[in-house]
Amino acid sequence: MKVDSSGSKDKWVNDIEFGGLLCTDCKTLIISASDEADCPECGSHNIRRKKNSLSRTWALTLASLFLYIPANILPIMDVQIMGQSSKSTILGGVIELFNYEMYFICIVVFVASFVVPVFKICSLMYLLITVNRKSLLNNKQKTKLFSLVELIGKWSMLDVYVVAVMAGLINLGFLLKTTGGYGLIFFASVVVLTMLASHSFDTRLIWDEG
């Protein structure tokens, strides 16, 4: 939260304008003239602005976007019953759950495995595009959006965990065996890349003008 220095509600100032730098971890405003400073509150090392933040974020977001395609095409799970494998992709699994009328799990899986990564990628791209530009959302909303992206980022690993647990538990050899598919690797990569991307994004840039 930024400090309204002038007292006017419409006027926002960033940390640089305020003459300091904001701790990225605890959001403490460090009054320091130098580009680097240790946070007096949490002790983390802060740089005034992350280096190549936008470029790195762009690269990682695009990479996750690309990998999201094989993550959805390739099967993420392979259930082998009597040596007969039954592979399913993410959306295939969602549809299957829907067909089985297991709507709650269907929605959970759908949200965690499909909506969240797509939302993250889209949000990041939106933020990257609209940084330093006028946009539909004001800076405060954008910051909130970013917080949301960071918050839900880790939940996308749900799918991966599910498959990992199933592969460990459901293993009766020839009779019944569950293994992860290649899609899972790509999916995990997508999640990791989006997390890295969001990490490399410096929210303070939102507030930097032009």
Partner: peptide, 21 residues
């Protein structure tokens, strides 16, 4: 702006995806 080695990642990802498809 400088070329960042991080750009290898999307390129690699693109290559993998394209190859798979």
């Amino acid at each position: 702006r400088k070329f960042s080695p991080v750009w290898i990642t999307p390129i690699l990802a693109l290559i993998i995806t394209l190859w798979i498809v």
